[in-house]
Deep mutational scan, measured.
Amino acid sequence: MALNTPQITPTKKITVRAIGEELPRGDYQRCPQCDMLFSLPEINSHQSAYCPRCQAKIRDGRDWSLTRLAAMAFTMLLLMPFAWGEPLLHIWLLGIRIDANVMQGIWQMTKQGDAITGSMVFFCVIGAPLILVTSIAYLWFGNRLGMNLRPVLLMLERLKEWVMLDIYLVGIGVASIKVQDYAHIQAGVGLFSFVALVILTTVTLSHLNVEELWERFYPQRPATRRDEKLRVCLGCHFTGYPDQRGRCPRCHIPLRLRRRHSLQKCWAALLASIVLLLPANLLPISIIYLNGGRQEDTILSGIMSLASSNIAVAGIVFIASILVPFTKVIVMFTLLLSIHFKCQQGLRTRILLLRMVTWIGRWSMLDLFVISLTMSLINRDQILAFTMGPAAFYFGAAVILTILAVEWLDSRLLWDAHESGNARFDD
């Protein structure tokens, strides 16, 4: 018995066209964080690309023209004298008006014999932002004059995390709450300039795509075929072959399989920071003279006294001054041990922890910024005066060393310790 099946006739004509040209192939790229070699397709503007294995951002879609970056830099340069030299806060102490600005706080630190601690604050609040705007201006002028731009481009990517104007702005709020127990506070004209400078700096850093600047100024022929001998440069993120001198053909720094002496430098910085954190938390970090009496505060006791007036601000200072430094030390110690013992479990967790400490590390400088600003506000000789204690130097040095330890660690070593050939990683 035959089955009668109805015929289905399409209502619209289906047209099949042959592909007349070869589909576009992607360029081969190595991930600078996990060293995976993959094919990167062509990316349009405002599109980002991520590593298929570790999800690290390979290409950032946010990109401004150099002219727009230069305009932002010149605007920031105009704001800087007002943000640093004009009063941020006014207080009335014992019937006398006192003005506080950024430069005055750094000068008070240096004047009291601790120039190293003052230079830490100076670099993060004044030096690094000033280098940022002058570097962008150098790129703008240098591109037109045919100057060598490689050193500036190499420095810009590392400079971003040292620009800490946003953290200093939080420190202004913390210092205001600490001082309000002794005097009446009012915002100064410099505060508005400083807030504007923070906003412009944040926007500029978020749109400063150094890798795209490398592509514009020093374009290189990408690798179009897969080759395990391809290496990625950690300076400019170019994937290719080393030249005859073993250097990256684009930025001219040595092109090595792994960062040289990464573990040794990381261990040295980490152990030194552990040693410095002990006096930083045991010795007094601030000293207040009130009517001839002397009151010393460690980091913890200062947080407890701050909690009596504002528990939320005390929580912020606790996280930045105690929780973050010790968390960074514990995480980095764990990561280094996992590399030495070739741990194969929990790779995803370790990668996330490394990215976390990379982002939060700079916030530990908050305590030094609060001390710097408070020193310029309260300084009335023996009637009422505020000065920093010996722990300030140890704390600042420990924070900087932990930042350097994270920067010096080559994250690809975590993958080397893991089993080879993993296309995915999980716990």
Rank of each mutant, 00 (worst) to 15 (best):
M365W: 03
M36G: 07
E228S: 05
I285D: 01
F194N: 13
T327L: 13
I43N: 14
S364E: 00
I167S: 04
T402V: 10
K178L: 00
G396N: 02
H340L: 09
W415H: 12
A417Q: 09
R158W: 02
C34W: 00
G292C: 04
R216G: 09
A272E: 00
V329L: 10
L93Y: 05
A385N: 08
D367G: 00
V189E: 07
R250M: 09
L353P: 09
Q104C: 08
F238V: 06
L205A: 13
P279T: 13
I43D: 09
R258F: 05
R150I: 05
M109R: 02
I58N: 08
L40Y: 10
L37A: 11
F122R: 03
I274Y: 06
L94K: 00
M1Y: 00
R17Q: 13
P6H: 14
E161D: 11
S321Q: 04
F141I: 15
V189A: 08
Q29R: 15
R17V: 13
F82H: 13
L23G: 11
N4H: 09
P249F: 09
G235A: 05
P390R: 06
R30F: 05
N148F: 03
Q186S: 15
S65I: 03
S45V: 14
L69E: 06
I303M: 06
R231K: 07
G302T: 02
M109T: 07
Q344P: 14
A56L: 14
P219Q: 09
F393I: 12
C343Q: 12
R216P: 03
L159S: 01
H46W: 12
K12Y: 10
N44D: 15
I360W: 10
S411F: 07
L208I: 14
W363R: 05
V195H: 08
A73D: 07
T201I: 07
D27H: 12
A405E: 04
K160L: 06
A115E: 14
A175S: 14
L283I: 09
A312L: 10
P24S: 13
A397E: 09
A397T: 06
R250T: 12
N379Y: 02
C233R: 01
Q7R: 09
P222Y: 06
D63S: 15
R158C: 13
G142H: 02
I339T: 11
G127Y: 01
L271M: 07
A385D: 05
G389L: 01
T75S: 15
D367A: 00
L145C: 11
A314N: 01
L384P: 01
L230G: 11
G105S: 05
A2Q: 13
P6D: 08
L366V: 11
T117F: 02
N281G: 08
P41C: 14
Q180H: 06
W359L: 12
G302F: 01
L208G: 08
D35W: 03
I360T: 03
F326A: 04
D114H: 11
M375F: 04
F333V: 11
I199W: 06
S39K: 08
R62I: 06
L191Y: 03
A391L: 01
A272C: 04
T110V: 07
I339F: 15
T11L: 08
A187V: 07
A423E: 14
V170S: 15
S305I: 14
W107L: 10
V174G: 11
P81D: 13
V275M: 11
V163R: 03
Y28G: 14
W92Q: 04
I253K: 01
W363N: 03
G389Q: 01
T117L: 02
Y241G: 09
I96W: 03
V232L: 12
A385L: 03
S65F: 05
D410Q: 00
V16Y: 12
L413W: 10
A423C: 15
L347N: 15
V275R: 00
I285V: 10
T298V: 09
S305Y: 06
P279F: 04
T9I: 15
K265I: 01
D367C: 00
Y218E: 07
